[in-house]
C-alpha cells in the first residue's frame, strides 16, 4: 500500500530521468560523459521501497532509457539487478544513510551498470564476428586464399563496439561516469532518500 501512495511521485520523478539524460548540461559532464541519472534516482528509491519495488522500478526505467538509445545493448539487466540489490540493503537503513555510503553504493552501482553494457557489447561483437567468420568459411570452402582474404573487411564493417574500443574508450566511459555519479550521489541521493522516507512516514501516520 505504501508503494501505491507513492505512485504519482514515483512516476513523476521517474519520468524526469530520461528527460535529464537527454538534457544533461555540458558543464555537468566529465570527458563528455554525463552522470548515470538512472543510478542517482534508483538508489534512494530502492533503498526506501525494498527489493521488489526496486527491481520493478529498475525494469521500468531501463525500458524507458532503452527507448532513447536505439541499439541492441540494454540497460534493463543492470538496473533490475541494482534495484534488487539496493532493495535488499534497505533493511540496514541506519548503516547506509550516511553520505559516504550512498556515494560508495552509487560508485559500485554505476560501475556494475557500465560493466553490464560492456559485457553485452562484447558478447554481441563475439556472436556477430563468429557468424561472419562462419559465413566466410562456408563460402570459401576449401580455398585457403579465400579464407585468408575474406574475413577482414566483413569484420571491420560490423557496426558494433569492438573489443579494442571497449578496452580503451569503454573503460574511460566507465571511469568517468562512475566518478561523476559517485560525486553527485551523496548530495542528490540523501535528499531523495529523505523525501521517500517522509512520504512513507506520512502515509503510515495518516493510516493510523
Amino acid at each position: 500500500m505504501a508503494l501505491l501512495s507513492r505512485q504519482p511521485w514515483l512516476v513523476a520523478t521517474g519520468l524526469l530521468v530520461p528527460l535529464l539524460t537527454l538534457a544533461s548540461p555540458g558543464w555537468l559532464k566529465l570527458a563528455g560523459v554525463p552522470p548515470a541519472w538512472a543510478v542517482l534516482w534508483l538508489l534512494p528509491w530502492a533503498l526506501s521501497a525494498g527489493k521488489r519495488a526496486g527491481s520493478g522500478a529498475g525494469l521500468g526505467l531501463g525500458l524507458l532509457l532503452d527507448g532513447i538509445h536505439p541499439g541492441p545493448a540494454s540497460l534493463v539487466p543492470g538496473l533490475v539487478l541494482l534495484g534488487w540489490w539496493w532493495g535488499r540493503m534497505g533493511r540496514k537503513a541506519p548503516l547506509i544513510q550516511r553520505s559516504f555510503s550512498l556515494g560508495l553504493l552509487a560508485l559500485l552501482g554505476t560501475a556494475l551498470l557500465n560493466l553490464s553494457l560492456m559485457l553485452q557489447w562484447a558478447l554481441l561483437s563475439w556472436r556477430e564476428a563468429a557468424a561472419v567468420l562462419g559465413g566466410v568459411e562456408r563460402l570459401a570452402g576449401g580455398a585457403e586464399a579465400l579464407r585468408q582474404a575474406g574475413p577482414q573487411a566483413a569484420l571491420l564493417a560490423l557496426p558494433l563496439w569492438r573489443w579494442q574500443d571497449l578496452s580503451t574508450v569503454g573503460l574511460q566511459v566507465l571511469l568517468a561516469q562512475t566518478l561523476l555519479t559517485a560525486l553527485l550521489a551523496p548530495m542528490l541521493c540523501s535528499l531523495q532518500l529523505l523525501f521517500w522516507r517522509q512520504l512513507a512516514a506520512g502515509w503510515r501516520g495518516s493510516a493510523v
Partner: peptide
C-alpha cells in the same frame, strides 16, 4: 535539441 557526444551512445 539534445546531444550526447560522449559515452556509450554518441548521438
Amino acid at each position: 535539441i539534445s546531444r550526447e557526444p560522449g559515452g556509450w551512445w554518441q548521438q
